[in-house]
Simulated scan of single mutants.
Amino acid sequence: MIKSLSQVALLSPGINQEPGAMPGEGLTALQTFTYFVAAPIALFVVISVIAWALTGEKKKSTGSSSVITSIE
């Protein structure tokens, strides 16, 4: 029983692969951090800043306002 469990544990990584799959080298810790942590955070910040800049309050003009150009 113990021998059969150890054989299953050795074969388990091969079970998840598709037939004919040839996996390449793994990612380094720096690449993994960059791709899955830093890049998503940077994209979120950039999109947030763009959205904030485009939807922020506009300056009100101090000149005379016209009924045609503004609704109060």
Score class of each variant (00 low, 15 high):
E57Y: 10
K59H: 03
T34C: 09
K3M: 07
Y35L: 02
I15M: 06
L43K: 10
K58L: 01
A51I: 09
K59M: 04
W52G: 04
T34G: 13
V45N: 08
E72A: 15
S65F: 08
S65C: 05
P19M: 08
A53R: 14
S48F: 15
I47F: 09
I47V: 02
V8C: 07
G20I: 03
G63E: 11
S6T: 15
G14Q: 05
S48Q: 09
Q7T: 15
T62H: 07
Y35G: 00
G26H: 06
P40W: 02
V8T: 15
Q17W: 12
I71H: 06
E72L: 14
L30H: 10
T32W: 08
L43P: 02
T62M: 10
T55I: 04
S65K: 07
I41G: 00
K59D: 00
I71M: 03
V45L: 10
I68L: 12
K60A: 07
P23T: 03
L5W: 10
A53P: 00
A38V: 09
A39R: 02
F36T: 03
A9F: 08
P13C: 09
L54A: 07
A9S: 05
V37Q: 07
F36A: 03
A38I: 12
A38M: 05
W52K: 14
A21F: 06
L54Y: 08
E25Q: 14
K60D: 12
G63D: 12
E57R: 15
L54P: 02
V67H: 10
P13N: 00
Y35R: 09
Y35K: 12
F36S: 02
I47G: 12
M22Y: 15
A42F: 04
G24P: 02
V49A: 10
T69S: 08
A51G: 11
V37E: 02
G24I: 04
A21N: 02
T55E: 00
S61C: 08
E25F: 15
T69P: 06
M22C: 11
F33I: 01
S12L: 13
M1Q: 01
P13M: 03
F36Y: 11
